[in-house]
Nucleic acid binder design. Sequence first.
DNA 1: AACTAACGCGCC
DNA 2: AAAGGGCGCGTTAGTT
Length: 604
Amino acid sequence: MAELRIAVDADQDGPGGRLQPLDEHGQPTGPVERVRELAAAMAAREQAQRPRWVWAATDEVYVRLLPQLPASRLGRCHDVKLVEPLLLAQEGAYGEPRSLGAAWARLRGLPVPRDLPLGLAAAEADAHAQDALFAPDRSRLEPGVDPLTALVAVHTEQLRRLAALPEQDRHGLRLLVAAESAGGLVAAEMAYDGLPWSTTVHDALLEELLGARPTAAQAASGARPPKLAALGIELQEALHARQLNPDSPGQVLQAFAKQGVSLTSTRNWMLRQVDHPAAPLLLRYKELSRVYAAHAWAWRDAWVRGGRFRPEYVVGGVVSGRWASRGGGALQIPRILRGAVVADPGWRLVVADAGQLEPRVLAALSGDPGLIRAGAAGDLYAGLAADAFGGDRARAKLGLLGAMYGQTSGEVGPLLAILRRRFPQAMGLVEAAARTGEAGGTVRSRLGRVCPPPSAAWQDATAAAYGGDVDALAEEGGGRAGSAARSRGRFTRNFVIQASAADWALALIAALRRRLAELPPGPAGERPRLVFFQHDEIVVHSPIALAEAVAATVTASAEEARRLVFGDTPVHFPMDTHIVERYADAKGGEPTDSELDDEEGPGF
DNA sequence: AACTAACGCGCC
DNA sequence: AAAGGGCGCGTTAGTT
């Protein structure tokens, strides 16, 4: 069955807009239709036709529609602004502007408008747009260009470019395009729905950790919360330094030196090795000091409203395909505060993370039989240890992480030699990626996301060195050039894994979003909502009655993602799933195997 | 005073 | 000699 697509142009002012039906090649199949209530018109067509909605940018169009849509929302979309950089990278272009206006300008041979900064909040972006030479709106179209005309033309061209890709890349890219667009929907919805955040529990945690909140006047004069101040005094006593400012690394180093402890920095990993009573005090001080500065009362005043934490998620914000976020440090909520993420009364949190995702991705990518066997029983690192490290799980994990990140120093070196001997296909894959990067090349994720090429500065630094012998340069080249070559090797080495893991995670949330929408709503029409996504972990806020079904849906979605991204791999990506009232109660345990679930192609 | 770069540390 | 990937955000040190 040919897929119905509908292009959407929302009026800049007011609730109306225009719709145009398209065929699977993006060609119009009917006239442009003007509607007075865009959201209502789209909701009706969603019910009747289940089209793929085509628009300039989800973070522009869908964000405005969301408050007016029914709870069932919309199913699928094609986001021109998210797709454009994926295609540009296929064509060897990187860092080009990605807006509809930019794509239109390239198509027509016109001057290409710069992008607005990625992930800019709507109000801020509109302020920027006012100043810009080119465009009065966020699509960056020149005045006088019909947005719907440009959208239809650019969309058709994107489909043509997809179809023109080499056959071996086409399938993966089509999947990536669909998944990236679905990610846009999820990101907009997560920002709109918000993460349930209990001010009461947050307060209790802060009280316990820091004591009472300083008054505005106290805070202005630099006063710290009572428990932090008390810890500072303890630290002064432990170091016999009355005037010590614990926030000053220089003073702390001096004080330790006077106690006969010679440190080169106050980094946490260094302090953990120090045998002095002041070291644990300082570590605790720094931990609490960070909570106070980054995630305490001031943070909450800025980011929590109506019992919801509402950050902004930036799809495609990381070159590997991971999401970035803006505002409130959404992807860095300290574990110590996760108790404040509390389900509403009558609701639960379904918390699931993909245990040991990256080594499993390496196993699937490389097809290495030893690594596949190591992960088959559950704990991959334990399997690896039993197989090759005399049962020493810690060393097995250290070695494999070192292989994936490009670490060579310390005790990792000998571990790599063991891994090379026992898992030659897996090690061969990451080392080939490193060599490609060192030589200035690019690498691809499983679905075909391409890493950025090296910068001009990198090429200048490395081109002349060692007479162009990149292998020798990376192996033994000193100075900036050798260091730059090795650094890029570590980046491309990690990219193939991190970006392929991001492919899988994106397919996971796309499948999960669709499957959650297919669940029957609760008795009062309540719907489970995906409220958090952090690289390899998701949280669904669900009515209690649906929580078990949601947990099963997560498992099925992980299995769907496995099949879509890795085909017939024997590797599984088990989700560790918990139904809890508080995020903090979802303790990580041993991974369990997902159930098999057969079905047809991607529905997102 | 306002800005920038480097650093450290939170998360994965 | 140096020798661990990706981010966001707050602080500090240095600059203008």
